[in-house]
Nucleic acid binder design. Structure first.
Length: 448
RNA sequence: GCGAGAGUAGCUCAGUUGGUUAGAGCAUCCGGUUGUGGUCCGGAGGGUCGUGGGUUCAAUUCCCAUCUCUCGCCCCA
């Protein structure tokens, strides 16, 4: 026997049970996105690495230690280094520039769903490949857009019945000039006190002093308390912007915590930043996070263009749904199990199964040579609603047995009526059909 | 990247103070006289006890390394 192979570290198979949740979540996201005028975009899973270098920033944790680079062996025809996307925003903004979307009516509203990758030690709710839903509004800057975006996300959480478990954390980190000033003020504040900061913060002070603010280290927290606050450095416009946004959130009735220490680890953010946190534990494990990135498009070679967006982690959403006891609807039920005995019945059941399936009935057939007992046991395991049963006798008489599994009752009906009888009992609304009209036409022709 | 714990059947776990063929429940498959499921009864398959090395007459058990998983930190979704 060869060595078994498992999934790479930090990755996992989405098994049918979780697939139900994923499908359910995607559906909620799609509906809310369309209602709000978002269109789907799907950038490639890997990009030129510079997309992320420029956007996310070289001195962020993501780029320093979490980026997955992609190499092609032996060939050097490409000059650029490639990387698996660690998030969506940079790639979507690259697409905005590449396809001249500034020509479209603004704001351009895009959403996306798919895997993103970060090289990190896996733990609860953290994977090397995880699934994200992403929303972006590009081209116009107005607090009402921020509020609308957060509102769409709130509705998705409400649809999935986890909104009450989460709490919105919100902050305004101002313009990059403000932040530069504030950064140097922080440096001044900590000057001479470096030894009291943790090692990480000593390094952060060099490259990104704002990150010292949300350090959890006790000593750092004490020093941060005495540090200057960012709102002293914000422009009047930023303060006004933030106040308006909070007003709009009040208007929507979305509760929030004003969190002056929320800064987020990506360089491209400015103005509004927000995250949805687990309310019960108050843990910093964000289920969704986002903010303004008004300088990003320019960094990627486009005209100065404002934007705002967020990413939401599907694994963490599923975790919360399970914790809250939310069940995803199960749509893979088996409606009919076809059992047969003897070569003639087996042959006839092939077309019968096909007709049932084309009609929209979930059908499984036992086409092995197993005993009828085994076939019935299988029908039971699959929790089939009905079993259609046909042996030599029925074939001879042109009949078939229709058994209601729950009731444990059965009757013999003409073979030709099998499909229509099943449809009648299941109810037309419960058929699994495409909304393509031709398919229904096919069925009518066949059954008539 | 740092710290802690765990790895025995598909799943949940017993067990061996080092000693013949390593167990249970659930799950899977088959059977319980003619062609009928769920309950019940019987049976079968499935593990080189995570991997490699060391100590020993003997290792699944003790020691070391390694891999993987889980939890925490960092950070994020």
């Amino acid at each position: 026997m060869a060595e078994p192979i498992r999934t790479p570290k930090g990755t996992y198979d989405v098994l049918p049970e979780d697939q139900q949740y994923q499908t359910y979540i995607k559906k909620a996201v799609r509906h809310r996105a369309r209602q709000a005028g978002f269109k789907r975009i799907e950038p490639p899973i890997f990009e030129n690495k510079s997309v992320f270098d420029r956007g996310i920033g070289l001195h962020t944790d993501i780029m320093e230690k979490e980026i997955f680079t992609v190499e092609r062996k032996g060939k050097t025809e490409h000059k650029e280094e490639w990387a698996l996307r660690p998030e969506y925003t940079a790639g979507v903004c690259r697409a905005y520039v590449e396809h001249g979307m500034q020509q479209l009516p603004q704001p351009v509203q895009l959403y996306s769903m798919g895997p993103v990758f970060r090289y990190d030690r896996p733990q609860k709710g953290r994977y090397r490949q995880h699934f994200q839903c992403d929303f972006e509004m590009i081209g116009i800057s107005d607090p009402s857009l921020d509020a609308q975006l957060i509102n769409v996300l709130s509705h998705i959480f409400k649809d999935l019945q986890i909104f009450d478990r989460l709490k919105l954390q919100i902050n305004n980190i101002g313009e990059s000039e403000n932040r530069k000033e504030y950064s140097s003020a922080l440096k001044d504040h900590f000057a001479g006190k470096e030894r009291n900061l943790c090692e990480d913060c000593q390094r952060r002070l060099e490259h990104n002093p704002l990150r010292v603010l949300d350090c959890k280290n006790e000593d750092c927290v004490i020093l941060v308390k005495m540090a200057p606050k960012i709102d002293q450095y914000l422009s009047a416009e930023s303060i006004e912007f933030h106040e308006r946004l909070l007003e709009y959130l009040d208007e929507y009735g979305i509760p929030y915590d004003k969190n002056p220490n929320l800064v987020r680890g990506l360089d491209y953010y400015n103005q509004t930043v927000f995250e949805f946190w687990d309310q019960s534990t108050g843990s910093q494990n964000a289920v969704a996070g986002g903010g303004h990135y008004d300088g990003l498009i320019e960094l990627l070679g486009g005209p100065p263009t404002p934007g705002i967006g967020f990413g939401a982690g599907v694994e963490r959403i599923i975790w919360h749904m399970k914790e809250a006891g939310v069940k995803a609807p199960m749509k893979d039920q088996v409606d009919v199990f076809v059992a047969q005995l003897g070569p003639d019945a087996k042959k006839k059941s092939l077309k019968l199964i096909e007709s049932l399936r084309n009609t929209g009935v979930h059908t499984i057939g036992a086409l092995g040579e197993a005993s009828l007992k085994s076939q019935m046991r299988l029908a039971d395991k699959f929790e089939a609603t009905f079993t259609l049963l046909m042996g030599q006798m029925e074939v001879k008489n042109g009949k078939i047995i229709l058994r209601n599994m729950k009731a444990g009752k059965q009757e013999e009906i003409p073979f030709e009526d099998a499909v229509s009888e099943v449809v009648k009992l299941l109810g037309k609304d419960n058929l699994d059909i495409y909304s393509i009209k031709d398919r229904l036409g096919d069925f009518k022709q066949e059954s008539e």
